[in-house]
Amino acid sequence: MSVNLTLVLVAAALLGCGVYLVLERSLSRVLVGFVMAGNGVSLSFMAAGGPAGRAPIVTKDGPTGGLTDPLPQAMVLTAIVITLATTAFVLAMAYRSWQLNGHDDVQDDIEDDTIRRLALRDVTSEAYDATTSDYPGDDSSGDVNQGPDDDPLASTEEEVRSS
C-alpha cells in the first residue's frame, strides 16, 4: 500500500503539538491540544484509507472501480462529531471552573495534596525543634509556629489530623 507522506507528516505534526498542549495546566489549552491531536488522528485515518480516488458514490450505471475506501471516511466523520461534542462539554466545564475558582487550571491530585499537607504537618509537629534544624533555608517551620489566629496554615493542621 502506498502511503501519502504529506498526510502522515501533517498528522505527526498535529499530534506532536497536541501532546505538547495537553501537558499544559490550563483546561482550555489542554482542550485545544486534544482537538489538535484529534485532527491528527483523523488525518492518519485518511492515510490508513489508502490512495485517494473518486468520491465513493456508487450510481446505478456508473463505474465502481477506482473509488476511495469509504470506511475510514465514515469513521472520521463519527470521530469528528464526537470531538465536537467533547469540545462543547469541556468548554462548558472550563467556564464553570472559571466561574467557581477564577481560573480553569487543572487542579492537583487529592492524594498529592494530602501528602503535601501531611508533610507540612510533619515539619511542625511537637517533636520538631525549629532551632536545631539542619536546614537553615527551611523557613516553613517558623511560618507555621505563629499560632492559629495569624496563619491559616495552623488551622488546617487540625483538619489534617481529622481527615
Binding site: 488522528v41 490508513a48 470521530a79 469541556v90 466545564m93 471552573s97
Partner: peptide, 26 residues
C-alpha cells in the same frame, strides 16, 4: 467539577489512543 476535570481528561486521552490504534489497525 474538579473531579470531573481529571476524569474527562484521562478519558479523552484514552479515547485518542483508541482512535490511533483503530487507524493503525485499519
Amino acid at each position: 467539577v474538579r473531579a470531573g476535570t481529571i476524569y474527562v481528561l484521562v478519558n479523552l486521552l484514552s479515547s485518542t489512543l483508541f482512535l490511533i490504534s483503530l487507524a493503525v489497525t485499519y
